[in-house]
Amino acid sequence: MSNQLYWFIARASGITSWALLTTSVIWGLLLSSKVLGKRPRPNWLLDLHRFLGGTAAIFVGVHVTALVADSFVHIGPSEILVPLTSSYRPVAVAWGVVSLYLLAAVELTSLARKHLPKQVWHGVHMASFPLFAVATLHAFTAGTDSANVLLRMAIVAASVGVVGLTALRLVQATEQKPPRTTPHPAPSRPRWPEAPATQPPTAPVYAPPFGPRP
């Protein structure tokens, strides 16, 4: 059992990191779509969203380290960094390599958000959606436990949740976007009668509350 311990840790950390990543994506969608209203404070949602993403990255690190240390699957640094170089299910492992790069990009740009233009951060952050898709594909094809009924049910439920919230967010974004051309001119504001010309305001004269008035 001891010689397979790294393999067990690799499988467990892979599933755990996928769950954390999925929760982080759902948390981010809940935050941006404002589905929950103001009862859970946005700051709390944002903080937990960031923490979930960071924890997912840590567990992906555990996953990769355990795979390298494992002797059952011969995966080294080159197989982890270069897609399609693994002898064990090369295409399925390649999805994991791609998701590793996407996760690194999203996490690093989020950490450096204050130093980046908002459009750059937002553009890279949108890679979270392909990241979720590729990571799910990796879990579904490369994992030894892909045939597990519980894992399959979790993958289906998470996918439905992410797709549903994404669709809701897209609808919200479409509705909030102002039309570029207005077919009818906007009604003009009622015009008040012109006020008589007044002199420019002068500095108020200081009047002490007590004492003789000037």
Partner: peptide, 18 residues
Amino acid sequence: TVAAAAGTGLVVLTGVFA
């Protein structure tokens, strides 16, 4: 809570696999 759940999941899954 999140960290504890993730750590527990890792340990439990490793045990189940073993």
